[in-house]
């Protein structure tokens, strides 16, 4: 597998995220909007702990270590 395939998969995943976002914004969509996804995570007794820790880890991983 070469780099082109890897980047292509990342591009597909990114396009998928954009597609889901657009779908969730359409009228009558059965898909939760991103804000609802985050809100569901942030209001779950255990999920919210994972959400906060995940945000912390991402920042530390990307910008500090």
């Amino acid at each position: 597998m070469n780099a082109a395939v890897s980047y292509a998969v990342w591009a597909v995943l990114g396009a998928g995220a954009l597609g889901l976002w657009a779908w969730s914004r359409s009228s009558g969509a059965t898909l939760a909007r991103p804000a609802e996804v985050v809100e569901r995570l942030a209001t779950g007794p255990l999920l919210r702990i994972g959400l906060v820790l995940g945000w912390m880890w991402v920042g530390w991983h990307l910008f500090a270590r």
């Binding site: 804000a35 809100e39 919210r48």
Partner: peptide, 17 residues
């Protein structure tokens, strides 16, 4: 970095609701 900060602020606000 700014996006990361905004995401953190968004998470805090969403959790308050």
């Amino acid at each position: 970095f700014f996006g990361w900060l905004c995401l953190g602020a968004w998470i805090v606000r969403r959790g308050m609701r």
